[in-house]
Design a protein around this nucleic acid. Structure first.
Length: 263
DNA sequence: ATGGCCAATATGATTGGA
């Protein structure tokens, strides 16, 4: 089965691109971020018409995450534990049943954290701690688990065309990378890095300053796999060409192939 | 990573993004 993640930067602005990409990529499950609308404004019908079940955790103006799945959802849960008043819609978890057993998938939108230091950076670091606590709990279930989304983390200097330009940025500060590495070290596998050591693997190019034309990108959208998912990893990729479409998101889809029969 | 953008909002300026 194929599982993908894409920060669409407004699902309503990206609907034509999203449906075109779904037809081309044919993913079984899609994790969307920055849908930038409330649940009742989410374009369910055109996506259901393509055979997807839809789960939405929306928010007005900012943030918002969703899941599309060709398989029915057994369970859907929104929000990350430990929030205590956190109203930002950044986390949606679902469980599906396949011919080969259950698969757990999370669509997450980790806070940007700029400017750092400051309140926004503190929120990012706390969110990363909450995510690690969640991952530790779910890893104990020993299920195929895919934590997919926009992490707003450049893991290493190899994940940026111009790493020096990011030294003071919340996406690349040492503390940010330390916490991401600690998450990986709980026993998760970064699917792109597990399948390729190629340079220039990016998932985001800024709208500004000709970043796309110069290939001045960064890799910040990740699919992290539990051992039970990693054992079944047969491929991973980045649909870079989508950045060249009309009215693009600044992010492109990233996906994994798992040796799991959907049905 | 700034010269250059984009999306949402009772909207024509401001906020947030990365």
């Amino acid at each position: 089965m194929k599982i993908a993640t894409w920060n669409v930067n407004s699902v309503r602005q990206r609907l034509d691109s999203l449906t075109a990409w779904l037809k081309e990529c044919e993913p079984d499950i899609v994790c969307l971020q920055e849908i930038k609308c409330q649940d009742d404004a989410f374009p369910r019908e055109p996506l259901e018409a393509l055979g997807y079940n839809v789960a939405v955790h929306g928010q007005k103006t900012f943030n918002g995450v969703a899941l599309l799945s060709k398989l029915p959802f057994d369970e859907v849960t929104s929000g990350l534990d430990g929030g205590d008043g956190d109203v930002q819609a950044r986390f949606l978890e679902a469980l599906v049943s396949t011919k080969d057993g259950v698969v757990r998938v999370v669509s997450l939108y980790l806070p940007n954290g700029n400017p750092a230091p400051g309140d926004k950076y503190d929120y990012k670091l706390q969110w990363m701690d909450r995510l690690a606590a969640f991952a530790r709990k779910r890893l104990a279930l020993e299920e195929p688990l895919v934590l997919a989304g926009d992490y707003n983390v450049i893991p290493t200097a190899d994940d940026a065309r111009n790493p020096d330009a990011w030294r003071e940025d919340a996406l690349f500060l040492p503390t940010t990378r330390d916490k991401f590495r600690a998450l990986i070290n709980l026993g998760l596998t970064d699917a792109i890095r597990a399948t390729s050591d190629a340079a220039d693997l990016y998932s985001f190019w800024d709208y500004q300053a000709g970043a796309w034309q110069k290939n001045n990108g960064i890799r910040i959208d990740h699919l992290l796999l539990s051992p039970q998912a990693a054992d079944r990893l047969t491929g991973a990729g980045i649909d870079k060409h989508v950045r060249g479409w009309d009215k693009p998101s600044d992010h492109v889809p990233v996906y994994v192939e798992l040796a799991i029969e959907p049905r």
